[in-house]
Design a protein around this nucleic acid. Structure first.
Length: 529
RNA sequence: AGCGGAGUAGCUCAGGUGGCAGAGCAAACGACUCAUAAUCGUUGUGUCGCGGGUUCGACUCCCGCCUCCGCUACCA
């Protein structure tokens, strides 16, 4: 009888292992990482899941053409391509699910057995154009039409109509329940445009869909018909519950995990896979009597030169290319601040460089630098005891308080760019404050020591708040700022600092030992890119 | 074709319910010197996709058109 769900659960899609990781994948994972780190700093229990989708004909085929067994090929791709990406962008996921793992396979089989027992699966046959060369069914729309003949676009050979015995999922019967559910919970598909698309799709009517394949061998066999494997999507989507312990005994560790995290709070998806997550997935869950996800959030695409990234046009950029240039923190900062989450956005090296230089190096980095230099110069590196606050100081204090509230409001609803904007306002306000208060002038008269102390303390407190608020976005750089302030010794680990206290004035104690150290955001080399 | 989104300063983008066009960056000039040649201030620029209409007044509403993109299921 342990209590129900008590944590924040977020997933990224599981990435198709055969793809080459590009910044689009990293973008989704970064957003998930920032949001989950934020929730951890709100003091919540968090479960952040990502992973890889490893079944299907394509994987099998490329494995064979590289002289690998499918499993070995998948292992190689996971360890050489996908896990390294997480390191590259500094993602702190709690688990990494692979659809070839024993846990997942077992969960998938249990799930479908359950759905079948509930009467939502039946035997039928699927008929469609089939290419012998590809060994797979084609979509009517993909075929080339030449002289009245329909050709496979890859092999340019005629396709034949083929009938295959399949097991079908009764998708159709969930049409109305889904419409009802989304009508009652409009917040569960975001942004609004995504919600509209899904509703339009649902209202046009659903048909039952085959959930197994007989021509594919690299997959999870149906428990009741070993000759068929589960259709990849109906295998892959289940990762969200198999990873969390679906099907395990209630009193086991896994069972308890499932109870504490499900239903999931946010499925982050690219808008290209929205339908699978907002239609098929909840229908499957309904069929298995599992609660539905609270929210599916579809973000936009990254455009390069105005076009969607693609491998054929060589616009698919490896995350490491950018991280090697500006670092993981700036990567995270850039993509979440420069692009409105939920909309398409353009990436360019010029924009990246410009924002890094102006907002991070000149803005935040230099603020930390000038403050540290002055505390070292005027107070021997010890954060001084402030005196009475003036009106100008109060403006800063209030600004920070408001920024903390605003940032939390925006980031909690996945509006990262506005959230970051709120925090950046504090950086700008602090830089302005320093320039206006002119502590270097105050320092010329020993009689004004207390005012000097107050000004420098105010800036130190601003930096403390900025570091706490930016920590989810830039974990490494904010830790550096934390160390510059000597805050680790005086108030403890930065990741333990609560968002709810970020805007509270006076947390950094006088007496903290400041050490300037190296630049937090060094200037970029000019010859690159 | 139907539905949905987008077309606003050099660049990236904001602009519920109509009222003198905005921000950031870039550029120019000035101030300052604690700082990563940094920071702060000042300054300009726009036929707000095109053509009509409603209105005292439209970027904002209506009609038509052009361009780009997405969705319109068993592709991952």
């Amino acid at each position: 009888m342990s209590s129900a769900k008590d944590s924040f659960y977020l997933s990224t899609p599981i990435y198709y292992v055969n793809d080459a990781p590009h910044i689009g994948h990293a973008y989704t994972t970064t957003a998930g990482d920032v949001l989950t780190r934020w929730h951890r700093q709100k003091g919540e229990k968090v479960w952040f899941l990502t992973g890889t989708d490893e079944h299907g004909t394509k994987v099998q085929r490329t494995a064979e053409s590289n002289d690998f067994k499918p499993q070995d090929w998948a292992d190689k791709l996971v360890s050489e391509a996908w896990l390294p990406v997480l390191k590259t962008i500094n993602a702190a996921n709690d688990d990494f699910i692979r659809t070839t793992s024993a846990k997942h396979k077992k969960g998938v089989q249990a799930f479908w057995e359950n759905v079948k027992a509930n009467g939502a699966v039946y035997e039928g046959s699927y008929e469609g154009p089939y290419c012998v060369g590809c060994e797979e069914f084609k979509l009517p729309g993909d075929l080339l039409k030449v002289n009245g003949q329909e050709l496979c676009p890859i092999h340019s050979k005629p396709v034949e109509m083929l009938k295959e015995k399949n097991w079908f999922f009764k998708l159709k019967q969930y049409q109305q329940p889904l419409i009802d559910h989304y009508t009652k919970h409009p917040e569960s598909i975001q942004p609004q445009s995504a919600y509209n698309e899904v509703m339009a799709f649902l209202k046009q009517g659903l048909e039952d869909i085959s959930m197994s394949r007989s021509a594919v061998s690299w997959g999870i066999p149906l428990p009741w018909d070993e000759k068929q494997v589960v259709y990849v999507w109906f295998d892959a989507l289940l990762n969200y519950i198999t990873a969390a312990g679906y099907g395990a005994p209630e009193d086991s560790a896994e069972g308890k995990l499932f109870k504490s995290v499900w239903p999931i709070d946010v499925h982050l998806v690219g808008k290209d896979i929205l339908r699978f997550h907002a239609v098929y997935w909840p229908a499957m869950l309904m069929a298995a009597n599992v609660k539905l996800p609270k929210c599916v959030f579809a973000h936009g695409w990254l455009l390069v030169g105005g076009e969607k990234m693609s491998k054929t046009k060589l616009t698919g950029i490896a995350p490491s290319l950018i991280v090697d240039y500006v670092g993981a923190d700036a990567f995270r900062y850039y993509f979440l601040s420069a692009i409105r989450f939920g909309q398409d956005g353009s990436f360019s090296w010029e924009d990246l460089t410009a924002r890094y230089t102006s907002e991070l190096a000149n803005g935040l980095g230099n603020l930390a630098s000038r403050e540290a230099a002055m505390i070292e110069k005027y107070f021997d590196g010890i954060v001084p005891q402030p005196g009475k606050l003036t009106a100008a100081d109060q403006v800063l204090v209030e600004g920070i308080k408001k920024a903390a509230i605003d940032a939390d409001e925006f980031i909690t609803k996945l509006d990262f760019s506005e959230g970051i904007n709120a925090i950046r306002n504090v950086v700008d306000a602090a830089n302005l404050y320093v320039t206006e208060q002119e502590p270097w002038k105050i320092a010329k008269d020993e009689a004004n020591k207390e005012r000097l102390a107050t000004v420098l303390y105010c800036v130190a407190e601003s930096l403390r708040a900025i570091a706490v608020l930016y920590h989810a976005i830039m974990p490494e750089s904010t830790t550096k700022i934390w160390n510059i302030l000597g805050a680790n010794e005086s108030i403890g680990d930065i990741s333990k600092q609560l968002i709810s206290n970020a805007g509270t004035w006076g947390i950094l104690p006088a007496g903290s030992k400041v050490n300037k150290g190296e630049a937090v955001f060094p200037r970029l080399a000019e010859d690159e890119q």
